[in-house]
Design a protein around this nucleic acid. Sequence first.
DNA 1: GCCACGGTAGTACCGGGGTACCACGGCCTC
DNA 2: GAGGCCGTGGTACCCCGGTACTACCGTGGC
Lengths: 220, 220
Amino acid sequence: MTTVLIADDQPLQRFGFRMLLESQDDMTVLDEAANGTEAVRKAADLRPDVVLMDVRMPGMDGIEATRRITASGDRTRVLILTTFDLDEYAYAGLRAGASGFLVKDAQPEDLLSGIRAVASGDAVVSPGLTRRLLDAYVHHLPAGTPEATAPDPRLAALTERELEILTVLGKGWTNTEIATRLHLAESTVKTHVGRVLAKTGSRDRVQAVICAYETGLVQP
Amino acid sequence: MTTVLIADDQPLQRFGFRMLLESQDDMTVLDEAANGTEAVRKAADLRPDVVLMDVRMPGMDGIEATRRITASGDRTRVLILTTFDLDEYAYAGLRAGASGFLVKDAQPEDLLSGIRAVASGDAVVSPGLTRRLLDAYVHHLPAGTPEATAPDPRLAALTERELEILTVLGKGWTNTEIATRLHLAESTVKTHVGRVLAKTGSRDRVQAVICAYETGLVQP
DNA sequence: GCCACGGTAGTACCGGGGTACCACGGCCTC
DNA sequence: GAGGCCGTGGTACCCCGGTACTACCGTGGC
């Protein structure tokens, strides 16, 4: 069950969100807040999974409230909602620690799936902003990916496929899961896993996962 | 009306996508392709608004096909679909010019709204990847993220002994090793491990180790 | 006194994981 | 064409890991 705190200065807006969220089996609205100060206090009090945060509010605004909530150390995630997808708001909100940024004219389903994604630790931003973020990101990293090609000697002997297998081992997948999701026979998976263990000097998949973390192939 | 070309080597998968898309009033499937070469040819021929592109295909893969399609100068956008969100695929695909990257286990509505977003020039990536992109992006900005993670709630329920067990699980120890090195009976170790798994929501010790890394209990 | 909780330990059972081996097609390089 | 590497698949076997119970003993709180 995902618990939500709604922070918005417009009662009618809050009502709409509450109706939408309460119609879902897996969501419940803990409380509402009409400004940033109230949002920070109630977030600390109720420890909701997600705070639905409006940007423009009297007194403390949503950005500052987001900063304080994410700085508190609680697990609470903030999803910022605004009427316009002005970049200044978005970037400021994301730098303040928000897990997402959606425009209010999004489809209800988008809002719901956004809340679910944020609650599970993922991030969500509206498509228009994604485009701009992506451009900025690709522009910032012209050549390679963060971990372009593994420099760690322990992974040097691994083939592409074996690196792939090691990566999904790092996700905690079982052999049968790997088989179905990669469209392979389980015997093939076992062969690959066996070779990964041999080449990385791991006794079992647990040590292989540790190896994956230590080499930076997968990251927490 | 958004025109779409479906590129996937699995006929059943293509059929599913076609059924879903054709059920929408504003979409039409121009044609299908079973590999990258075919996708490039048909994209140049039919000039679809969007190409739904699978990554893994025999012959030319989806990444290379994406590169050629976006390099052609046509207005055609490419939305990459894959079974799992391995970063290598995502980054490679996005660098190849794709406008989006979604995992196949996404909700049908997410796929549809993704196609519409891409067709209108926006970009879409799956929530999990958004998180990582965002982290990388924010990390590149002057103002850092206040990611001060206090003791993770997933570990809150664990007793001292159980934290100890989880820590040595993170070292890759087997049950018998834990037993001898901590001077316990193996049955006791099993009891502890079982409780750790239950409390951390892990299916097996592999997932528990991942949890240990993600919570920062053990570090690479 | 009693109860809850944490740590310890036991038994029984079964499924998945890991090993050892073999095999075949595709691709590359001599 | 021969050989090697890689990815794929198969069979057979054994053991560890995980589950589902139950049980006892301290300690601390009411």
